[in-house]
Structure formats: structure tokens, C-alpha cells
Amino acid sequence: MIWTGVTKARGAARFLETRRLLTLVLAGALVWSLTGVDWGGGIVHTGGGNAFKEFLTALFPPELSPGFLKLAIAASWQTLVHAVAGITLALAIGLALGVVASGSLGHLGRSRLAIAVAARFLLAIMRSIHELVWAVLFVTAFGLSSLAVVLAIAIPYAGILGRIYSELLNDVPDGPLDGLRSSGASPAKVLVYGRIPLALTDMIGYSFYRFECAIRAAAIMSFVGIRGLGYEIQLSLNDLLFSEVWTLLLFLVGLVLLVDYWSTRVRRSLGS
């Protein structure tokens, strides 16, 4: 008994020694690798400091002329409209596919599992392609229209929302569901009276977060030539008009903060 104890202690000590040695070797390798870096130049863009300073000082003040503000408001509105339309469509598609993918609709009988797996697969395809790639595809198909942006946001976001919804709907506690079942509720009724109310606060919270992301995505659609905040930012950047860039960035931040505020209000009223 005593001897096995000693051997065990020895084994543990040896393991610690090995680990320390390994740490030392790896730290040595890191230091040695630093000698391989050419410190002479090229690591930092030498003119970058000045350009950055110029960019920062342009914030004081940003471009606030009435004409430009009007343009910024119009661009913000366009971006917001794209984001709202995209996320709304995503909510509807995501909820429908998410419910099916969660497998909580028992009435589909024996094919239930197959249908759930198919829905999960579809959601995975939708979200594995980035919204910009979808945008390129839809601009090719529909031209530079709002429809292209809305679909480009709606499809990958529906994929993400559907996946999260299906998880949230499955992760609710069993107790309340058993209570409903013992009252004779079918799976569809358990969904409406149990799963959805139990998961709703989290579902809404996550949807709002995705709405913020959708605003960002709608803004960045300028990369494929669609108008909005991102498009104006790109134009001003090309002309090196940094004060204008700042104004537009502030509008973008303002939009996101607005959604954040709304989300807080809604969640408070749900009283989680």
C-alpha cells in the first residue's frame, strides 16, 4: 500500500517535470522565432501614422452641413429599410424551418426524423454561405435592386435564426411540457402553449441581436454596389473626406444603438 503510494507520487512529480521542461522548450522556440522577423521596416506602414492622425482629427468636427446630413439620413433610411425587410423575412422562414428542425411537431409520424434532418440540412446550407456571396448571386439574378439585398440578408440569417430557434425550443424544461401532455395536449399544442412561451424571451433577445447584425450587413452591401450607408462611406473614403466618413459612421452606430435600446425595452416588458 505504502509503496504504490510512493510510486504514484513519483509518477506525478515526473509528469510535472516533463510539463515544465516542455513549457521551457516552447518559450525558447518563441523567442528564437522572433529573431527571424525583419525589424528594419515594412512591419508598420510608415505613412500610416500620419494618415491615421488625419483620420482621427477629422472627427472634430464631423461633416454637419445640412446638405450632407440630408444625404446621411437618406442613406441610413435605405440601410434600415433593407435590414428590416431582410430580418423580417428571415424571422418568418427561420421560425418555420426552426420548428420543423426541432422535431417538436410530432404529428408528422414516422417521417418526422427525416423531415427534421432535411430541415436542419437546409438551414446549414443557407447559413454556410456568407451574405455577401448571396448578394453577388442575387445581384447577378435581379440586378442592383433592393430585392437582391433583402434576399441576401434573409437567407443566411434565416439559416442562423432557424438553427438557434430549434435549439431553444428543444432546450426548455420538461416539467411544464409533461404538465401540458397530461392535460391531453398534442405536440403542436405543447409547442404553442409550452415550448414557444418558455423559449420566447431568449428567441426575441437573439433575434434583436441578429437585427443589429442585419444593419451591419445591409450597410456593407455597398461592396456589390448597392446604395446605403456603406456606399456613401465608400465614396467619402475614396475622396479622402474623413469628416464625412465620421458622420456616416456615427449614423451607423446610432442605428445599432437604437435597435439595442428597443431590444432592452421589449425584453423588460416581457419581464424575464
Binding site: P173, G175, P176, D178, G179, L180, S182, S183, G184, A185, S186, K189, Y193, G194, P197, L198, L200, T201, L270
Partner: peptide
């Protein structure tokens, strides 16, 4: 048959009336 559990059989997020009406879900 109907079952009463500890307190877990209610859906806390729903108003009382909906939790009571859930007793009718078998018939509706």
C-alpha cells in the same frame, strides 16, 4: 387521468388564465 406535479407543470411565462385553460387542450 390528469396529473399535478410539484409546481413545475405550469408555464411561468403565460398569464394564469392560459395555464388554467391548458386543461382543455385535450378536448380542443
Amino acid at each position: 387521468v390528469g396529473l399535478v406535479q410539484q409546481q413545475l407543470d405550469l408555464v411561468p411565462q403565460l398569464p394564469v388564465i392560459q395555464n388554467v385553460l391548458a386543461g382543455r387542450l385535450g378536448q380542443w
